[in-house]
Amino acid sequence: MKIYISQIKPFLGDLSKNIELHKNEIQHAIDQKADIVIFPELSLTGYFLRDLVHDVALKSNSETIKLFESTSKRIGIIAGFVYEDENHQFFNAAGYFEAGSLKHLHRKVYLPNYTMFEESRYFAAGKSFETFDMFGSKTGILICEDALHLSSLYLYSLQGVKNLLIVSNSPARGFYSDRFYSQELWYNTIKFIANNLTVNTIFVNRVGVEDGVTFWGGSLAIDALGSEIGRCDLIREDNRIVEIKDETVRRSRILSPFYRDEDPELFLEFIRNKGIIK
């Protein structure tokens, strides 16, 4: 399965410009015979939306959703946007479009609301991590902060995902002499997920600057055996085609059967005995 990583620079709060940007990238991915194109978190809207959240929100019957549905007859697409549900709750969401329909919608569960982040001021939190079939391969989507928690990884792992796709808007910050905090955190996380959950892991981050904050790009793909299979430049717009296979997961689980030996009963017992669940 060939995946086109689209490391773009969205326009803040301008849906129509971003739709054009997506169309160009999708065409580029089709030309390169990719099966799926993955865009970063909130790729259709930009990140620091604040009061624009409600203006750029998409309902499931919106023209933009229909456009992506129909385009997905030619290629699978993962794109990020603000989703407004029937009760007018607004979610930081990522949709997977395949074969003419919105096949799966993930609502971001863990909304960062500290230091420079204020997501739970504007968004409702999703409540679940559910897998979907991506051209026959069981897959889960994590939106940025989702991937930094244990419960999300655990729940996806228990459901037997073969691939985890992390779409992100990670800002560059915390510079030291030989590294910077956000890159180190993310690369450690991605390598951990790939190696220890034995799943193909693809991190798609955006670039560009919003109000002085630089999104650092550096999108990275690590296969289930822990090998790097592709990465994008730091700071600049870029793209990369990577190929993932279920077979890699099989080989990895023969080599390192962590998945087989994981015992959810221990976890369940712990929660019961400590009175966390009555």
């Binding site: 803040l12 301008d14 620091f48 009061d51 624009l52 919003e210």
Partner: peptide, 9 residues
């Protein structure tokens, strides 16, 4: 009334 300065760019 909270908008980023880069609103729309």
């Amino acid at each position: 009334f909270r908008y980023s300065r880069d609103w729309g760019y």
